[in-house]
Write a protein that binds this DNA or RNA. Sequence first.
DNA 1: ATAAGCACGC
DNA 2: GACGTACGTGCTTATA
Length: 579
Amino acid sequence: MLQQEVCFDTETTGLDANNTELVGLSFACKQGEAWYVPCPADKDATREILSVLAPVFARQDIRWVGQNLKYDMLVLRWYGYQLAGEVFDTMVAHYVIEPEGKRSMDLLSAQYLGYEPVPITELIGKKGKGQGTMRDVEVEKVREYAGEDADITLQLKYVFLPKLSEKEVEKVFYEVDNPLVKVLADMEYEGVAIDVGFLNEYSKELDREAKLAENKVFQAAGVRFNLASPRQLGEVLFEKLKLDPNAKKTKTGQYATGEDVLLKLAHNNPIVEDILAFRELTKLKSTYVDTLPQLINPKSGRVHTSYAQAVAVTGRLASNNPNLQNIPVRTDRGKEIRKAFIPRDSNHVLLSADYSQIELRIVAAISGDPNMCEAFRQGKDIHTATAARVYGVPEEEVTKEQRYKAKSVNFGIIYGQGAFGLADNLGISRSEAKAIIDNYRKEFAGITSYMDDTIAFAREKGYVQTLMGRKRWLRDINSSNFTVRGFAERNAINSPIQGSAADMIKMAMIRIHREMRRCGMKSRMIMQVHDELVFDVVADEKDAMRSLVVDNMAAALPLPNEVPVLAEAGFGLNWLEAH
DNA sequence: ATAAGCACGC
DNA sequence: GACGTACGTGCTTATA
């Protein structure tokens, strides 16, 4: 069947795809030519127009080209339409070609086509109070603008095609990021239900506790001031109370008052505890508890995050409005917030499935270190196995302390941490930290040589890459500046690890999405948190979904050296229970 | 509006 | 002796 290719763009009244109105659609099928379909403010009239286009949207043999198609797909979705065919997203193509670059349409056009399009601000004004919407612009002008966008996007595709090939990033584009676009659009459309009543109650509790903590700080300090201001706090702690004659300052000259600084000064001073409690309580309240309810979409009653697919240079997704990838989990007070993430109705439960130690498994697999690979093959607790080797004791005799330190070293490896950082992190001497690291490098010589080899590779080729061939170019890797080069070297080590993990879960998402459709599941994938997937599961699909998810996560991207990949899953009536 | 400092996640 | 752990988002304060 001959594939027809159509470039497609929507004009809307806003930027939030889940809460915007169509102003028009533009289409381009060959370069230099475009069509514009205006849509009236009347929703029913717009639906009439879309119903005429419906047979086109439903065609399996059309490939839709667009810049950030997820946005346009979401807009259509809220009007009841889905694109059945494949997609080619130019923004995502540019992301794999140049992960660090900016990629607004106007910039891409100027850079790759040598053409500067009319900026949108020319039509709707500069952003701020006075900015209008596309709805207010004469249709002739919108037609011109929209048609140009569709045409430019189609032309960009033909500039990017040879670049995907030259840069050897076709595999990651066609097998990972491009097919992920539709999966993310579906996830964002579904959203997640929030227990507002619970959050409102919790907000009051946090407020009471924050005020208590604040007053205790004022009592101890002998002054009232704005405790939320790090600058004022620093002056009180270090000038009025003189808690540390050697207080560290930030680069702008004000006192540093971060958590680690406060914990190190005056170990026994109760004011520190109250300051940190105040910080935790107000952070939870303002960032999560009071904000999430405001982001509930009135049409669905759920929150719809937006996954940024072309932002994180390593290949990870990012999440915003709201960010669902930094919901607290560490402290008891923080965990409470996860209770507010609930199934859509009483016939659903949440399923959470996460990869076990995925980044360390990837380190083992791509370094081929025999000891670490073997530990994973034997299903050992990796931090205990590490401690046993580093401290030269049998695994049964590893103490909690030793395991804790080994765990810290394992994480340090992933980030390229040195002896100073480890010492600082663990509160041990630099010499002890150095001894631990020296032992580690000896016992896991494969990892040591992987790090050396990766940096050497980067120096020679100018880039590093993931298991799926996602690349990160490191222009500073040969810098003569110690600091600048050091950053590039840590990126060289971390990017293939973090990026390969991102490749793996993205491939899992694509497989799971496909299998769920094939089986006609009514359950839905709703969240991704780097190594975790969350699903809204219909009660009678629980067993099928658990195995579908866990099996496809484990099999998505087999690792070298027979390092096994494990995913674990749990159900719950809220996210905390399921996790 | 923008930067700084801080804190949340993986 | 430098420098000192990767990738993100978003809050409040403080200044322009």
